[in-house]
């Protein structure tokens, strides 16, 4: 019986074959991601309330987007809050304010993080009204 390997089964051809399969799989993955993102509304301009579309900044920012890793300084700037508004309304005594992360403040003062983020969002929402 002839056990010789076929002429076309060289190392180079195997690499080319694997690259073709990998290209096709990656392309399929890309197209399915775009399809999923489109259906989820990431490319739709109506995702944000109308008031934000006329904003001078390119990126609208909602109160619900506030996260624990953000700092007070950042919230002051993106929401246009007075420098000491959050300090007074939430009775923050820490000398590092406003250059202090929300989660770090909650941790230092033994406050439940989820409750704290809700109170921050309420304080910002109260000012915007």
């Amino acid at each position: 019986m002839d056990n010789k390997r076929p002429n076309w089964l060289t190392g180079e051809n195997v690499v080319i074959f694997i690259l073709i399969i990998a290209c096709a799989a990656a392309f399929w993955w890309l197209v399915s991601s775009i399809n999923f993102s489109y259906k989820s509304g990431y490319f739709h301009p109506q995702r944000y309330p109308r008031e934000y579309l006329n904003s001078t900044t390119t990126v609208p920012f909602l109160v619900s987007d506030i996260q624990l890793w953000m700092t007070f300084d950042y919230l002051n700037k993106v929401f246009g809050l007075p420098q000491n508004y959050l300090k007074q309304s939430m009775n923050i005594q820490d000398g590092r304010y406003p250059n202090l992360q929300l989660n770090r403040y909650a941790e230092l003062n033994n406050i439940n993080a989820q409750e704290f983020i809700k109170s921050v969002r309420s304080a910002v929402q109260a000012y915007k009204k």
């Binding site: 690259l19 990656a26 993102s37 989820s40 990126v59 609208p60």
Partner: peptide, 23 residues
């Protein structure tokens, strides 16, 4: 700059696009 809070999703798509390009 242009996609804002959707950046993670859009950046993920861009990453897959560069992978396809490289392969």
């Amino acid at each position: 700059y242009f996609f804002g809070s959707n950046w993670q999703t859009i950046y993920g798509i861009f990453g897959k696009f560069t992978l396809v390009l490289f392969l």
